[in-house]
Design a protein around this nucleic acid. Structure first.
Lengths: 217, 217
DNA sequence: CCACAAAGTGAACACCGTCCACATACCCTA
DNA sequence: TAGGGTATGTGGACGGTGTTCACTTTGTGG
């Protein structure tokens, strides 16, 4: 039974689900204003609780922000999965591998454009890349990085990537897409129209694909 | 004559060069702790002046931060220029064009590794990409983006890039390098050893070069 | 020479994160 | 079933921040 996570005055002394309520409020603030906008006191206010109550669930606002960041990463992973699921394996495994890799990039960029605040929050504070935090994962149980790795594995398996070029390729691919997202969201390209950004994104993933490949496609 | 920009107690009521002193202090804080560490009150403290004095020169701390950001961008441009100047034009214009493009990327990444705080500050707040702010420019009078454009122009002129592929190529190249820098500086790759990052950087610029090219190199 | 504007001061406000002592409600055991 | 222990929430306070308002000091141009 869902208790009152909104502002409505609660009757009970206990909140019942304060930790979740705080993360939800934080997620809302991240959505609206990015990482710097997730204010601990404001979260408690939205939960209808005194500021200090938060400290029963988080040691500091940094820890709250970390929980919010984790939730944002999870949303991102889900968005990438959605994009990947659009691609159906056909007769040509190479074509499918390439489409999948592009889907990862497009899903990544699409989420960044749709949810700038959450995207910026997701990468505001460094988590380990291989953090086994289950909150980061989407339904497949993989975080964005692992989804990318999977796509690259398929590239190699279908012969598009040599073993040598496969190594650490996720970092190269990731860098490109992540960079475009940030230049647009909080960088000098923030005035660029969305449709142009998406067109650039398409070219970008093609560039990555070509640049990674051992031999010309 | 340089007045007292440091903490030493000044005799005169007027500071004489407060604006510069504040930016310098802000630059120091950015160097040490990135954009969030540039505190207006702390800057005035270092300048030996009351907090409000800053408001005679900046309308808000955001404006101060903007001035600091601009200074950081200028340093970045200088670093890129240094790297480009290492390359001497030889007999093969294509080889020179390629080396120059790589130099932009390597200079960019090198500065990010050497001066993480300033780099992060440089891109903390969105300036227009074509802002004619002279403070952003290095000795050649070009900002980082323009230096990149120049390198790509040479790629086209030497026949490595078709006119079609040349268009907006700066955004693609920039994204890749910028993304790697940020993933390492304030992203999930922050624990990666510096030498590995630089090796990845080398692979990255090669990937960009290959991925941008109209035909296999 | 002196009025005026530029530049710096001081006190105050609201907001933030955080610490302390205290109050309340739930739960487990005797 | 009574009661004590613990998890959870409260209230008040502190130092730090950005910012505003009224004031003072200083340099300068008519």
């Amino acid at each position: 039974m869902k208790k009152n996570v909104t502002t409505e005055k609660r009757k009970t002394f206990r909140h019942g689900d304060l930790r979740n309520a705080l993360v939800t409020a934080g997620l809302e603030m991240a959505h609206a204003g990015g990482p710097n906008a997730v204010i601990l006191r404001e979260a408690t206010r939205q939960a209808g609780v005194s500021p200090n109550a938060a400290y029963r669930h988080f040691a500091s606002q940094a820890e709250l922000l970390d929980a919010v960041r984790s939730a944002c990463l999870s949303r991102l992973a889900a968005a990438i999965e959605d994009e990947m699921k659009k691609q159906r394996p056909g007769r040509d495994p190479q074509a499918f591998a390439r489409k999948s890799l592009r889907a990862v990039g497009i899903g990544y960029l699409g989420f960044a454009m749709r949810e700038p605040g959450m995207f910026r929050t997701a990468f505001s504070v460094p988590p380990a890349v291989d953090s086994p935090n289950p909150a980061n994962m989407a339904s497949m149980g993989l975080n964005p990085f692992q989804l990318l790795s999977l796509a690259l594995d398929h590239m190699q398996q279908s012969g598009l990537l040599s073993k040598k070029d496969r190594k650490d390729a996720e970092y190269l691919a990731w860098s490109s897409v992540h960079g475009l997202a940030l230049l647009v969201l909080e960088g000098p390209l923030h005035k660029m129209p969305k449709e142009i950004v998406l067109a650039l994104g398409e070219r970008l993933v093609v560039m990555v694909e070509r640049g990674l490949a051992t031999q010309p496609l």
